[in-house]
């Protein structure tokens, strides 16, 4: 391990268990020198970000001089498989910090590692430097054609998105505004007979003739079509939306180079 601090897994779901690691031997602060020569510890995590005002049982320290009295609940565990002086603290970040997942991803996690008595109050400090770890959410396995929100209700607004910045096909990358068209087929079901049928606003080679199928480029480079499916597809009374199949092509189509390889079926309703 070449770094002094990291989290595992690398792109964690912070609503699940995460390990926050520190390789004390790699700390750069002079105030950590004593800790480097004491690989037996014990050491404690002292963390203030994304939230320091936690429940009493998870505060960093206690008493009149909390810096000299780290919380036993925040005692770290040694991980000899990763190094002679490597320690981790295991937590579910949203529970530990008492914040939602989005806050953890927005603020990251800041902490240092110290012995139970961190010195101070006239004594020399004993601690690592501050570590500020950005926390990146897990990569979503939703492809490059998807709906936002992920739940589609036929009578509510939904946006079908083409994530052009993530497009692996070189001939489809960096499309300008006005160049992306979506070919969409809605599957509907008669609620009485359960017979299914399709609604296709335009055939694949005709989509550029239907302005409703032109995607709008967003500031982040993605494209979208926002709709209320029931109105967009003119779904008749007595039928319900089952799914939407979507793919994207260029306005001018000469060959398969001008379409994304991805064709996704997006299910309607609660999954």
């Amino acid at each position: 391990m070449g770094q002094a601090a990291w989290v595992e897994p690398e792109n964690p779901d912070v609503t699940k268990t995460v390990r926050i690691y520190c390789n004390v031997a790699k700390a750069t602060s002079a105030s950590a020198d004593v800790m480097k020569s004491n690989p037996d510890g014990p050491f404690y995590i002292w963390t203030w970000n994304p939230n320091e005002a936690r429940v009493d049982s998870l505060l960093n320290g206690s008493g009149d001089k909390p810096w000299k009295n780290s919380n036993e609940t925040l005692r770290m565990t040694k991980d000899p498989d990763k190094g002679a002086n490597v320690w981790y603290y295991e937590m579910v970040p949203v529970s530990f910090y008492g914040v939602d997942a989005n806050t953890v991803y927005a603020k990251g996690i800041s902490f240092l590692v110290k012995p139970k008595d961190g010195g101070g109050y006239g004594d020399p400090d004993s601690k690592t430097e501050d570590f500020n770890l950005p926390i990146t959410p897990p990569k979503l396995n939703r492809g490059i054609v998807y709906a936002v929100p992920g739940t589609i209700f036929e009578n509510e607004i939904t946006s079908l998105v083409y994530d052009n910045p993530q497009e692996p096909k070189t001939t489809m990358q960096n499309l300008p505004d006005g160049e992306a068209y979506m070919h969409i087929i809605a599957t509907i079901e008669d609620t009485t007979t359960q017979v299914r049928s399709s609604i296709e606003p335009a055939k694949f080679f005709k989509v550029q003739e239907n302005p409703k199928l032109q995607m709008k480029k967003m500031t982040d480079g993605r494209f979208k079509i926002t709709m209320i499916p029931r109105r967009f597809f003119n779904i008749p009374n007595g039928s319900r939306l089952v799914d939407i199949e979507a793919t994207v092509r260029k306005k001018t189509y000469n060959s398969s180079d001008d379409q994304t390889n991805e064709k996704n079926k997006l299910k309607a309703g609660c999954q």
Binding site: D13, V14, A101, Y105, P137, V148, P149, G150, T151, I157
Partner: peptide, 9 residues
């Protein structure tokens, strides 16, 4: 419109 099921909202 906020996707409440998304980790990052």
């Amino acid at each position: 419109q906020v996707d409440e099921k998304s980790l990052t909202k």
